[in-house]
Each structure stands twice: as C-alpha cells, then as structure tokens.
Write a protein that binds this DNA or RNA. Structure first.
Length: 313
DNA sequence: CGTCTTTGACCTGCGC
DNA sequence: GCGCAGGTCAAAGACG
C-alpha cells in the first residue's frame, strides 16, 4: 500500500522527498497556495459547492495561477496570536482545548477578518473532537465550532500528497458540480484529530486542493513507512508539534519559503491582482525556493513553471 | 494479521 | 417539513 503510494509519488512526481533539503518540511506539500480560511468553507456546503473551490479560494479569474511563491507574510496585526500559537505547547489535548484558546482565537480572528465579529459567549460547548452524528444538535444560534482550516492548492498528479503524517481515509464523497470526488482523511495517530480533505479542482483537474483541519497533537510527524521522506527536525519550533498550524507559527518563528498563511484581511481573495503581485514579488521567491525548483525536480514536477505561470486552460 | 481503502448508509445543516 | 449536499461511520475487502 505504502509502496504503491510511494511508487505513485515517484512515478508521477518524478522524484522522491529524499531530495528535499531537510529543512523543507514535508508535511506541507510543496509550493501550493495556503489559505487560512476565515470561516467554515464547508459548513455552508451548498455555498461552497456552488462556488467551486477556485472561487472559494479567491481564484475567480480562471487565469489566476496557482501560487508559485509564497505571498508576503501578513502584517503582524493580522495575526495577533501567531506568536502565541508558536509558543503553544504541544498539548496532547489540544483538540479539546482548541475551542477555548487556539480555535476560538482563530475563529474570532476569522470573524474579524470578515467583519462580522459576534459575541463569543460560546461557553466551551466543544466536547471531544469527535462529536459524531449522534451528538445532539447544538443550539441553533450557535454553529458547530470547527478547527481552523488551511488549504493548499497543489499541482499534482496524485491526490493524496505525502506530508509526513499518516492518514487514514475514512470517506469519499462526490462533490456537486465537480467530476472529482472529495476524499476525507484523518490522522492515524491516537489522540490526534487532524483531518484533511483532498479534492481536485473542477476547474483545473491538475490542481489538488488539500484542506487541513485541526492541529496535530503529536510532537513530531510520523515517518511514513517505506517513505524516504526527510522529516524536519524542528529547527526551533517548526514543524513540529502542530503539524498543520506551524504555518502560522512560521510567521513569527520560522520563515520558510514554502509556507505562508493568508489571513483574509491581508489578501483580497477576489483580487487576482493581489495574487499576481505576490507572484511578481521576488522577495517571496526565496533563493532556496527557486533553487529547489531548479535543483530538485519535485516541485517543478508538481508545479511546472509554465503551468505555474499561467493556467493551461 | 494489521493497516488501509472502498463504499453504501446514515446524520446534520441549510435553503426553499 | 422536505430535499439536497456535505460529512462521517463502519463493515467488507484488498494489500503487504
């Protein structure tokens, strides 16, 4: 099984992760765009499905390329808690406390981003991350809280990108207005409730949209069996404990060319110009990133330069 | 045998 | 209330 995946990676992406420098966190694939979703991208399922991911992510302009380079880090004011998150200990129970601190902060931030901050007063109704379907419906006025979500758009032939963690697929659903199904994965580590969804863009089948939800509670990524992935050694708090969220901590602790978070205030999702300016801003095309593209085939395979520059529509 | 995927059924939320 | 669509469960099967 793993071998299959490995083969897929090798055959379809031409190169393995072993070619990554060990500072390249493998748990976040590649140079796809990362979006810090301000809100629930799926809670209003119909909305998201009707919009389509590209639009949802702000790529309303079909010619808008997938991010090649990380866009500029958001202003510090946009991520007031980023440092907090960076200091956040790898709490083994983060899923249960997430609503009180991390998640709440994120959601609030998200709401602020949308200009619709409400009274919080949620009162810690979050139970275990596994409320399941049997859980009684929450108050109508109060939507089910969700872990913060982060999405990547990655050019890849493979749907399930190796990211250093082990995932168990627990579902697959057809997506409306999309010929491609959406797959649901859950981190196999005990006590870790991180989930991710993987789907292909209906507008560009070569784009894989991976949405992470939650924080890894285990301090270090699990080495994928049979994988030659070189896992990051946590150079001062990154990648690490949170796995998914480090991208936020990255803002303040570890600026890695591959990871970026885009709080909505700093990015006009509907603005192709913003994206274009990001792409043009070579400050964010670090040498390591650029050289990687040249020296290591993976990223190039995933995001061919011509594809990255313009969508072959 | 353990792990993971597949897949149909079920639950939930939302709009009409 | 109903229907639709997203999200999840869990049994069965595949695979190494």
């Amino acid at each position: 099984m793993e071998r299959k995946r490995e083969e897929a990676m090798e055959t379809e992406n031409s190169t393995g992760f072993s070619s990554f420098p060990d500072q390249i966190p493998t748990n976040y694939p590649f140079s796809g765009g990362l979006f810090d979703f301000p809100g629930d991208i799926s809670g209003a399922g119909k909305t998201s499905s009707s919009m389509g991911f590209m639009e949802l992510l702000g790529f309303q302009d079909p010619t808008t390329p997938v991010f090649d380079f990380p866009p500029p880090p958001p202003p510090a004011t946009s991520l007031p808690e980023s440092s907090d998150m960076g200091n956040l200990p790898a709490t083994p129970n983060s899923s249960s406390i997430s609503s009180s601190s991390t998640e709440a902060a994120n959601e609030e931030q998200a709401k602020v981003a949308e200009g619709e901050v409400e009274e919080e007063g949620v009162g810690g109704g979050e139970q275990e991350e596994k409320t399941k379907k049997q859980s009684k419906p929450k108050k109508k006025t109060q939507k089910r809280e969700r872990e913060p979500r982060y999405a990547f758009m990655t050019k890849s032939e493979v749907d399930h990108l190796e990211d250093g963690y082990r995932w168990r697929k627990y579902g697959q659903k057809a997506v409306k207005n999309s010929p491609f199904p959406r797959s649901y994965y859950r981190c196999t580590s005990a006590m870790c409730g991180v989930k991710k969804r993987v789907e292909r863009s209906s507008e560009d089948p070569t784009i894989v949209v991976t949405t992470y939800e939650g924080q890894h509670t285990h301090p270090s990524p699990v080495v994928p069996r049979g994988s030659s992935a070189v896992l990051p050694r946590d150079p001062g708090g990154f990648p690490n404990s949170a796995g998914v969220l480090p991208m936020q901590t990255t803002q303040s602790h570890y600026q890695h060319p591959y990871f970026f978070s885009l709080p909505s205030p700093s990015l006009n999702y509907s603005s192709g110009a913003s994206t274009a300016s990001f792409l043009r801003d070579r400050r964010y095309c670090t040498t390591s990133s650029a050289s990687l593209l040249r020296d290591h085939g993976l990223l190039q395979d995933i995001l061919p330069s011509d594809v990255r520059k313009e969508e072959p529509k």
